[in-house]
Amino acid sequence: MDPAGASVASAIGGEGEKFAVGNIYSVKVITGDEFRGIVMAYDPIPNFVFFEEGTKPRPGHLKNTRMVNASFITGLSYLGKTEDPLDSDNFSVDLNGLRAKEALAIRQAEADAERMGVGVTAEAQSIFDALSKTLPVQWENSDILVMKEVRVRSPYLSDCVFGGTDAANNRVKKVLELERRRLQLFGT
């Protein structure tokens, strides 16, 4: 352990009280991240500490949290102590709300995954995202299918537009050309 950790342990008390709820620390982990947080929970068996970022507790607000493996903490300096950061008297967990939130998040992630091209370049993905702002587009292998009838093939130039009616084809070519010009100007 780090000498600072040893000093903290000797200062506060036993090993179990090192990560007592309410302690405020400045933490450094092996990946190089540093942050300040309030200990909200600790379990010695999995050896994880749950921190709330910041040095002052905000019971009724959204906050950023970090669950850190104590084995990988390289720096720990004691900053102070606060009382009841979890606000346990007013605390309750809504299981149905959790399930709904989880289901919603997974659905959103799946929708985003469908928009991600497989085996295409970052430039192609940028063109896809640009076209999706104005036209209904979807991936079909490495081709961009616009309005379910116009096909844009690699390398996604205005000359690589096929299929669809003349009006739709011309529109896609025009939009594609404009989007490529915009990307060149502002970058991806």
């Binding site: 959204l62 906050k63 950023n64 970090r66 850190v68 990988f72 007013n90 605390f91 709300g97």
Partner: peptide, 17 residues
């Protein structure tokens, strides 16, 4: 696992509801 970072966590019953 070294650490897990979560943003926008609500730990209060009022805000969570």
């Amino acid at each position: 696992i070294v650490q897990i970072v979560a943003e926008g966590v609500s730990l209060s019953s009022n805000v969570a509801g």
